[in-house]
């Protein structure tokens, strides 16, 4: 059974459709890449799955349970974490405080929480080094690491990342992808959104291509990346409403 199962979802902003009759499945331990041109509905998709946008129609099941209509925080509590577009680090909070906000009760007792925090510090040394500094003072790449660590601290079963490489220097993108590879290896289920499909083949098992709010193509990442239809989907989707 799929861990995440979207069946015919429609999302609208007022009268404007952003996602149209979209269905997709994500198996436990799988990494799914979502690509598509600007305005294809990728961010809308991540927010809808995370429960921050209401569905107009369709259903979303997570681990067999319907989560459409649940409160955002309750979706999170089921083990679904989002690293949103633009990272959305909390302004006015220190690095450590940003991490604390992400820390969920499901981690267990105080000792378990401390261990989880240590793990994150080991994975992202900069977060330990700058723990008492203001989080918004970090560089873009460091903020991205913070956003990923903050999401991982909820011990998610599904991690959704929305354009984690956007605006980062190439070296930082490498670092982010290294982390994603490690997470994938550890068996975490990942939904990774990128506008630029070039790097995504490194981590994604399977790709779907969104354009104009609906699914245009899907298949194994290796096959699709060489496919001329991928470019086609990008070109045809230009200028579609967000």
């Amino acid at each position: 059974m799929a861990l995440l199962d979207l069946d015919g979802i429609d999302v609208r902003y007022g009268p404007l459709p952003a996602l149209r009759d979209l269905s997709l499945q994500l198996a436990e331990g799988e990494t799914l890449g979502v690509v598509g041109p600007n305005g294809a509905g990728k961010t809308t998709l991540t927010l809808a799955i995370a429960g921050a946008l209401p569905l107009f129609s369709g259903t979303i099941r997570f681990d067999g349970r319907s989560i459409a209509g649940l409160r955002t925080e309750d979706v999170s509590a089921l083990g679904l974490a989002l690293v949103p577009e633009g990272r959305r680090i909390f302004d006015g909070l220190t690095v450590q405080e940003n991490l604390l906000v992400g820390m969920s009760k499901r981690l267990g007792d105080r000792a378990a929480r401390a261990r989880a925090l240590d793990e994150m510090h080991a994975m992202f040394p900069i977060l330990a080094e700058r723990r008492n500094g203001m989080a918004t003072r970090l560089s873009g790449g460091e903020q991205q690491q913070l956003a990923i660590a903050r999401a991982l601290l909820s011990r998610p079963r599904l991690l959704i990342l929305d354009e984690p490489s956007l605006g980062l220097a190439p070296l930082m993108v490498d670092k982010v992808y290294e982390v994603l590879l490690a997470l994938r290896k550890s068996g975490l289920t990942i939904l990774l959104v990128e506008q630029n499909p070039m790097r995504i083949g490194i981590v994604a098992d399977r790709l779907i291509v969104l354009s104009g709010g609906s699914l245009k193509l899907q298949g194994p990442a290796r096959e699709l990346l060489g496919d001329a239809r991928l470019e086609q989907a990008y070109l045809s989707g230009e200028g579609a409403p967000e």
Binding site: D91, G92, V101, R150, S154
Partner: peptide
């Protein structure tokens, strides 16, 4: 800390389970 996070970005705080 949750309150300050919510004041900075309410939706993000909820996305993290607050």
């Amino acid at each position: 800390i949750e309150m300050r996070a919510a004041a900075a970005d309410f939706e993000m705080a909820r996305l993290l389970g607050i």
